[in-house]
Write a protein that binds this DNA or RNA. Structure first.
Lengths: 332, 332
DNA sequence: TTGAAAGCGGTACCAT
DNA sequence: ATGGTACCGCTTTCAA
């Protein structure tokens, strides 16, 4: 048995009315008698009618779908943020169409083109591309855009925590806990930087660290590789005080914690560790790693609501800085 | 300046040809002279033409998009599998449209309806619904479907590892390592079971454990709560031998590891731990937790390729069991 | 090789 | 309250 999806036309034929009338019934618009309306709805049920969103969107010019262009899902921060965006979008009757870029600007632009071609009402982008050409392309799409995580430029509304300020404060926070040295760890972005990929977020965080170090008049040390011996050597050379490792993201902090355990360095007695993002898995790891909570749900809500205001032609939208908090941790 | 997306009509007008001819040029179909073709392509570039996929799909009846209906993204196993599906889909010129169900069958059916209304060419579902009504609804959609993770019934093609067999073998594997007791840990499904939600995968795993226990003529112990004292008591009561905790998923294994560390139980000297899924984060945790690798990439590829064969009207498709391997671990 | 026109399934406006 | 119809943008078939 072949099932052919029924259409408005089928219902109209069955009820002996026009397509327009069926539309009035189905979308409860005015100008229809209760009697014909219920007759039509009944017929729709019998025929197991379900609307074709393609046709509807084509006719209406809007899809009630927003495109989300994300880097990957392995990163727990990203997947949680997408869950948050999905949830708030759903509350507002929107669906999301997800594209992954895997840090490839070409893939990214392809994906964005696809979404634009599918006429999404707006885009939330975790950008990996950058530059004048890139911006021009995006603007030509003429679709409302909100960026998160990485910023493109001031021409695009950006919603995020202020990673720079947070890291700057983190340095002071660590110093106040009595540490005499703060080592910054920032692994895996050299390659991306070399390829001209947008690493705004990571650079902000590192610059914040550098500013914090200046504030405290300390000596800066930035590690761009996970060089175990180097880390240990740095920590152990801190004879008259104690060193802490400030990591640009939590996974690094976990690795440092394991390294210290491996080498018999007691945390936080002999050295401190602090991460960033407060990813889920930290809950299951002991000792509880000190981290920064970026209020992912809030971030997702804000990003969506600002996008929605753009979609609804609100001209008065601006960047939004999300609040954060230092978590309670046992590693500082 | 308002930018209006250009259409085939615009190109046709600019070139003084018909829309049909423009279509021939754009989709390099036969029946057009090189000269007009290049003229049209040139015009398309000038007008910055990009196809409207909604219209195209409506006309062609296919979208080159597959719907993925997943439970959530917090679970690393799910997010990795989705990454794998996305990658292979992309290789084949397909995009994915993602819906999250959060273990809610109502949300799930809404999402599936939406995807069907958007005329996706096929669906990959991590089902949470079950039952005759549910199956009937799905069948009525008349869309190719592949299920992963949970099975619905033999009426739907299913692709996954054989969790039952794996767990059964895991018991023997543990016993061969010299353990005298295997405790099974399976937290968080009681609620779902009570609500009538599909937990096929988790039940298969547990049943496999029970079978393994029978094979080995041991005593079964299934823990459905993370009761720290109970776990410790069970482990410590194993005086003449050693107990291992077999966990239905890795996050539990991490928690058990932490518990043991907290209570001073040496792993694997005094007790063993084994997880399931081999999620990413295990790489960063030491000691390396013994787990089961389900070849997620392979699973994603197979699920997609079987779906694709269904889309292409291949009648000869069957369930597929994915190979697995026990990882190298330091906790057994 | 090219043009004309009839769809695809809804929506929306103008008559009646 | 209802019918009729011209779109939305692209594809496809039949004539020319």
């Amino acid at each position: 048995m072949i099932i052919i999806a029924s259409t408005i036309k089928d219902i109209a034929a069955l009820c002996g009315v026009s397509e327009g009338t069926v539309d009035r019934a189905l979308n409860n618009r005015s100008g229809i008698s209760e009697k014909t309306k219920s007759r039509i709805l009944q017929a729709a049920r019998e025929l197991d009618y379900h609307p074709n969103h393609l046709a509807r969107s084509l006719a209406k010019g809007s899809t009630y779908t927003i495109g989300v262009v994300c880097i990957n899902l392995s990163n727990n921060f990203f997947s949680l943020l997408i869950e948050a965006i999905e949830a708030i979008a759903k509350e507002n009757g929107y669906f999301i169409n997800l594209i992954l870029t895997h840090n490839d600007p070409v893939r990214e632009m392809e994906g964005i083109r696809y979404l634009a071609g599918r006429k999404v009402d707006g885009l939330i982008i975790f950008p990996v591309g950058m530059g004048k050409e890139y911006e021009k392309e995006l603007k030509k799409l003429n679709v409302p855009i909100v960026t998160v995580y990485n910023r493109i430029s001031s021409d695009f509304i950006h919603v995020d925590v202020d990673g720079r300020q947070i890291m700057r404060n983190a340095v002071s926070y660590i110093v106040q806990k009595g540490y005499s040295r703060v080592i910054y760890m920032d692994v895996g972005i050299q390659n991306l930087r070399r390829q001209g990929i947008n690493i705004y977020s990571m650079e902000e965080r590192r610059n914040g660290y550098l500013e914090g170090i200046k504030d405290e008049m300390m000596k800066e040390i930035v590690l761009e590789d996970f060089d175990k011996d180097r880390i240990i050597q740095l920590v152990e050379s801190e004879k008259h005080g104690k060193a802490a490792v400030l990591c640009s993201y939590d996974v690094l902090a976990i690795k440092v914690l394991n390294l210290f355990r491996e080498r018999g360095i007691k945390v936080p007695d002999q050295a401190g560790i602090m991460g960033f993002d407060n990813i889920d898995i930290l809950k299951t790891i002991s000792p509880r790693i000190q981290s920064v909570d970026c209020g992912i749900r809030n971030l997702g809500r804000k990003a969506f609501s600002i996008l929605l205001r753009q979609i609804n032609k609100d001209r008065n939208v601006h960047d939004c800085v999300i609040g954060y908090s230092f978590t309670e941790g046992e590693t500082l």
